[in-house]
Design a protein around this nucleic acid. Structure first.
Length: 276
DNA sequence: TCTTTATGGTGAG
DNA sequence: TCACCCTAAAGAT
C-alpha cells in the first residue's frame, strides 16, 4: 500500500469504519505498545489523517496511532470480529461494535502524544502533502525555486519527502512524464513554463491516482486497454513499468534505468534531456 | 525450494 | 552510492 494516494484511500476506508465513535477495543502486536491498549480502548476516534505516506489515527484525549506501511503494510476493514483470509501478520486492530480496522505486515507503528508528533524524526521533516487541497501550484513553484531544492536533480528531489510528501517511485516517473521533463534536469534550469507544468503535474497526477486507485494513465485509455486484456502493469501508467514498450503519445520506445536501487522510466522524445 | 523484486526509509562512508 | 532493515509475492530452479 505504498504511495500517498493509496495511503489516503486506506485512511478514507479506515475513517468510514471507525471515525467519530469510540473504539471499543485496540490491540497491538508489538509488546512495547501493549501499555497503550487500555488507554486507547473506549476512546473516540476523532480523525484519520495522512501526512504523505504516514497515517495518524487521532484519539480523544490527544494520543495518536502513527503507522507507516513502507512497502508491505496493508489495511483491511471487516465486520466486527472478522479477520481476512491472509497469510499476513496482524500488527494492529481497532474494533468498534460494527467494524474492525486491521493493519497487517507493517513494522512501523507507534503511539504519539501531540508534542511527539511535532518532533517526530520522520513527520517533522515532511514537506507539504501532494494531496493537500490547500497546496497551490504557485506555492509549489515557489518551493521549486527555493535554494534548498533548486539545484538538485528532479529524479532525487521528487523522492525526497521533505520536498513534497507522498510521492514515491511510480508517481515520480509519471509526474515527470506528464510534465514533459527529463529526470536529470534541475529546478533552477527549468523555464517558467516548465516549472509551472511540473508543479501542476505533481498535484494533478497525485490526485488522479487518488481518485482512480493508483491509475495515473488517462482513464479512458486505461479502461480500453484493460478491456483488451492488457496486464495490470501495461495499462495503469504512462511510462512506469513499461520499459521497451511504446509511448502512447509519440510512439517512441520507453527506457528505464536504475539509480539508488529505484527504477526510473522515461520517454526520451516526450522528455528531452537537454533544454530546447 | 530457492532467489529476486517491490509503489519505502535509514545511516554509514 | 551502498548496505541494510522491514515483509510478501512472484519468478526461477
Amino acid at each position: 500500500m505504498p504511495e500517498g494516494p493509496e495511503i489516503r484511500r486506506a485512511a478514507d476506508r479506515v475513517a468510514r469504519a471507525i471515525a467519530g465513535r469510540p473504539a471499543t477495543r485496540v490491540r497491538f502486536a508489538f509488546p512495547e505498545l501493549k501499555r497503550f491498549e487500555r488507554r486507547l480502548s473506549g476512546k473516540r476516534v476523532d480523525a484519520v489523517d495522512t501526512r504523505g505516506k504516514a497515517m495518524l489515527i487521532r484519539f480523544e484525549g490527544g494520543l495518536s496511532i502513527y503507522s507507516h506501511s513502507q512497502l508491505y503494510g496493508r489495511w483491511y476493514v471487516r465486520p466486527a470480529g472478522q479477520l481476512p483470509r491472509t497469510g499476513r501478520t496482524l500488527r494492529l486492530a481497532i474494533h468498534n461494535p460494527d467494524r474492525s480496522a486491521l493493519l497487517y505486515s507493517a513494522s512501523e507503528i507507534d503511539v504519539l502524544r501531540p508534542a511527539e508528533i511535532e518532533t517526530h524524526p520522520f513527520l517533522s521533516r515532511l514537506g507539504p502533502d501532494a494531496l493537500d487541497r490547500e497546496l497551490t501550484d504557485s506555492a509549489l513553484e515557489a518551493r521549486l525555486a527555493d535554494a534548498r531544492f533548486a539545484r538538485r536533480q528532479l529524479a532525487a528531489l521528487l523522492l525526497d519527502q521533505g520536498f513534497v510528501a507522498g510521492i514515491g517511485n511510480y508517481l515520480r516517473s509519471e509526474i515527470l512524464f506528464v510534465a514533459g521533463i527529463h529526470p536529470a534536469r534541475r529546478p533552477r534550469d527549468l523555464s517558467d513554463d516548465e516549472r509551472h507544468a511540473l508543479a501542476r503535474a505533481i498535484r494533478r497526477v497525485s490526485r488522479r491516482s487518488y481518485r482512480s486507485a493508483g491509475i495515473t494513465n488517462d482513464l479512458e485509455r486505461a479502461r480500453e486497454l484493460r478491456a483488451r486484456g492488457l496486464s495490470r502493469s501495461a495499462y495503469r501508467h504512462h511510462v512506469f513499468g513499461r520499459a521497451g514498450e511504446r509511448c502512447w503519445s509519440c510512439g517512441g520506445v520507453i527506457e528505464s534505468s536504475t539509480r539508488g536501487g529505484r527504477r526510473l522510466f522515461v520517454c526520451p522524445s516526450c522528455q528531452p534531456a537537454a533544454q530546447a
